[in-house]
Nucleic acid binder design. Sequence first.
DNA 1: CTTTTTCCCTGGACGC
DNA 2: TGCGTCCAGGGAAAAA
Length: 276
Amino acid sequence: MPELPEVETVRLAMEKYLVGRRVVEIQIRKDKVWQGEPEIVINKKINSVERVGKYLFVVMEEGVGLAIHLKMTGRMVLAKEPSDISELELDYEEAPHTRVVMRLDRGGSLYYWDTRMFGYVMAKTSIRDWLSKVQKKLGPEPWDISEKEFLMKLKKTSRPIKEVILDQHILAGVGNIYANDSLWLSRIDPRRKASSLNKKEASILLSSIQKVMERGLELGGASDNTFRNFEGGRGGYQNEFLVYGRTKEPCKRCGNTLERVVVGGRGSWVCSHCQV
DNA sequence: CTTTTTCCCTGGACGC
DNA sequence: TGCGTCCAGGGAAAAA
């Protein structure tokens, strides 16, 4: 599931390759994942690719652009040349879950692939307006919030701490993988009431979130299941999960058996010995 | 306003 | 082998 590090991995590659180029043709294979009039963005030069939380924005000339969310199983994959297709693990040209194909000028195709179709690609006439609208409803990213402000937000709610850091209105970008790993790193039980965290615990948690996400980004994201980067390849963080998905495996700190519990309806992994 | 619930969707894992 | 059931879970929208 693409979280901030995964989406940023994709953004970096998209920006590198797409700036200065144009989408010349759009093939919508599944109406559900596309919104807006595709004509809006045809032949418009791409100026930048931006990210807010887990949302992606392709900003083009004349203020138009694309708003993209990968949600659970979305991938944005590039084939620079038609022959590249054979080098990818999947033939995106023919793959049944390729939902949108965007042909680029000077060759190359951009594939939006998504099995479960929770994600989407939207064409917008004023992408900046849309970006700020999204930004407004989301909380700050983990690097853009002070310890004091973070603590204040936690003190205001008795919801479980894990549910709170997953709440995009409070903090943008954290998903289930990094929420679990950062709580383990902080030695905090995911079921604890957010308001029960003291100043020190809150600051440790915030820096742990930053730390695990930085590591995730370093490794190009986590590809335990369906995530693939812009080149169609895998990230490496799945080989370093601290607790995520490690049911009945030993805690990397104390050796205790990790257990799976459900918090806010989501799978959570916890070491009952060292997380309090 | 805050919090909870429901829904969207498909493939893979698992039990019988 | 095959079938049914559960699970993965971000976020919008509705309900409480």
